[in-house]
Design a protein around this nucleic acid. Structure first.
Lengths: 154, 154
DNA sequence: ACCCGATACGTGAATGTTCAACCATCGTAG
DNA sequence: CTACGATGGTTGAACATTCACGTATCGGGT
């Protein structure tokens, strides 16, 4: 951790650009979800993840792994969604420590209603005018970063 | 907003990778700053931005633009930093509505103490094993996304 | 059968962020 | 010069997230 620490001019410019994406892109997506459905970014992806599971059901701890989200946060979040009738908790018959989250019909309807606009915004912000080569590079860069994140245990 | 909304298989994979970076990279950087200096991500960049200004001083509203941060949030944030003696407020002589934030000597010392480890982590997570071509692509992709964000006014 | 560490949550307090006011000052049209 | 909208900033309440702790269950080892 001791050696020449600083970034080159080029790296600095790249980092600034990436940093702006990091801070503004989630904010923009969240704003749209909030307006259209009263959902936060994480709430949306929890509902979306849930709808992909067989029976639209999944153990809460498993969902936390998928969302890279702490159990405590997810518990509060699910309580909010439950109050709104979008998900429901049910005990896991196989393991009585465990709780399962189930996407309700109403939750599914909300998700189906809001998803197209969300996907359209992702397409517009990220993929419009991104060449296939550019997209491949972007994915490779992102995958490398995720690999590094796993390495440092974050 | 009506046409074929869905993402291709490839786009979906790219988006998932990007999404993981969006959620986990800031978290990892923030965790390091929090451990080493008790600073949040935004707090660090506010101090860093401040130290780049002549006289380590800047109008608060200008700082909010630089950090793409709302005034209210910045005001609370600066109050916290002020309580810790890292910055100080002073009235702007040119415009009496305005307040200026000044980085204190102690704030500067903390910044200098924590910056190397932060930069080293950025280098490790983002730039190690990123080819010059890859870096150029990454920056171009990020810049395009920022341009789109400006277009939709986010 | 019993003990003990690990796993799967839930909860309440502390902290941070957003939202909706509010006040003071500035620039300017009339 | 004055009234009025725009700008700069603060504040407090509402809401979300994190942290530390508590509880119940599970899976072994002995």
């Amino acid at each position: 951790m001791a050696e020449d620490p600083w970034l080159t001019e080029d790296e600095m410019a790249t980092w600034r650009a990436l940093d702006r994406v990091l801070t503004r892109l989630p904010r923009a997506l969240e704003a749209q979800l909030e307006r259209d459905a009263g959902l936060g970014y994480m709430e949306y992806y929890v509902l979306a993840g849930l709808s992909d599971q067989p029976g639209r059901t999944i153990r809460i701890s498993r969902l936390a792994e998928l969302a890279h989200c702490e159990l405590s946060r997810l518990s509060h979040l699910i309580s909010r969604l439950e109050r709104r009738g979008l998900v429901r908790r049910e005990p896991d018959p196989d393991d009585r420590r465990s709780t399962r989250a189930v996407l309700t019909e109403e939750g599914h309807r909300l998700l189906v209603a809001v998803a197209p606009a969300h996907v359209a915004l992702v397409r517009r912000l990220v993929f419009d005018d991104l060449s296939p080569a550019g997209q491949r590079m972007l994915r490779e860069a992102a995958d490398r970063i995720v690999t590094r994140l796993d390495e440092v245990g974050a």
